[in-house]
Design a protein around this nucleic acid. Structure first.
Lengths: 220, 220
DNA sequence: CTGTCATTCAATAGATTTATTGAATGACAA
DNA sequence: TTGTCATTCAATAAATCTATTGAATGACAG
């Protein structure tokens, strides 16, 4: 094999990965799977795809070895193939955020009430956890909380927040987190909580990023 | 804008980046530009693309803001848009290497004589540089050496190596580097040098990775 | 000016990707 | 066995991507 044929081969192999990443629905699926394993139907529902279409996108990701699947009972659970997949997704997120003013703008427009929304870093939260002076609120869907969540966090999915507000104390600081920086649930929750007189702030980034730093997580 | 429309927007913006990455020629161009800025014609020549085709791929990369261009004299110099682009490429390389057994196999097949080829890490090389007990050999094309190279490295492009072997001393250790882990020039050079009785080893990864760690580089 | 050179643009045919549809599969339950 | 359910497969039309061609642009040199 000559050098050109060799280069074509390696860059084509690499492009097999980037081609699989080159679709908005598949990126959304990866971002979702970063929360933990999920069956096709849940993935389809969360991403507003038909089951058939979601399955087809999952095949593409699987052929590129970005996800793997395992049958459990009636369901086929998909998960990220390994840590490198999440790390690559993080690199892409950073790149998107730094290169793409539209992306930044989009997110800031949507969070237009964000002024004054306080963001606390993982290390600050750890400190508060040690002193037991904080309530940690996981606003992701309950299924994702059940797979894994930040130690001592309580589950209160975004969609139930308003009607279950009374479960939360007004006098203790609340730190809210969700799927990650591309997810707005935590922002919206903090905004609502502050409006109703709670002391709420948002955790920087989201659950998978916390877990990737080997910070304390809990599994049910 | 509802939540679904918002999600579609952000993941589509992200996919704008991954779509631009989803082509083998464009990956090869990025890998090349990691060495430093280059005009269209050089890029076309190094990647075996027609100038028109290379230009078209460069437009795609530019629209995704992965590269930027600047006119200098008669030439339009393209370069990576910023450090995040290179870091994302590194993440993809790691991912490819870990997920894709074929890629690994391809490279190892091509380097079939690699057995016994010694690889030294950047920190080991730094140590040797301090003690001045090593010759550092840059086997990339001279243009790329001229843009920037490891401190005190000498240029001896792969294609001229055999006829200029006599410029190298037999009794001092030689460390060879090239464009990066997907480039075989350094491996081939080390192999040839060892066969001819020189004491040669290869630097782990390549020049852009060295530079990204802020290790000492030199510009002509 | 006029010509040259590096690059981009526009048009296009062929290849690939995508969402949809409906049928097929294969585990489990009755 | 039969039916149900979750998922995959196969076929297809529409959309998108790609390489090639040849013309257009725009800086610079004589």
């Amino acid at each position: 094999m000559n050098i050109r044929a060799f280069k074509n081969s390696i860059y084509s192999e690499m492009a097999g990965i980037t081609k699989a990443l080159g679709n908005p629905h598949r990126l959304e699926i990866l971002d979702l799977l970063a929360q933990g394993p999920a069956p096709v139907e849940y993935i389809a529902e969360q991403t507003d795809l038909s089951v058939g279409n979601a399955s087809q996108h999952l095949q593409v990701l699987k052929n590129a070895r970005l996800v793997s699947s395992e049958r459990q009972w009636k369901y086929n659970y998909y998960r990220l193939a390994d840590q490198n997949v999440f790390e690559t997704w993080c690199a892409l997120r950073r790149l998107g955020y730094s290169q793409n003013a539209e992306l930044k703008q989009l997110m800031e427009d949507y969070r237009n009430e964000r002024n004054g929304l306080r963001i606390i870093s993982p290390s600050e939260l750890l400190e508060k956890m040690k002193n037991e002076e904080v309530i940690i609120l996981d606003v992701r869907p309950e299924q994702e909380y059940n797979i894994a969540h930040i130690e001592n966090a309580i589950s209160l999915p975004k969609k139930d927040l308003e009607k279950r507000l009374n479960e939360l104390p007004q006098d203790i600081e609340i730190v809210v987190y969700c799927r990650g920086p591309l997810c707005l649930s935590a922002d919206e929750a903090v905004s609502l909580l502050n409006k109703r007189g709670y002391k709420a702030s948002r955790l920087e980034r989201g659950f998978p990023d916390w877990a990737a730093q080997n910070l304390p997580v809990e599994t049910v």
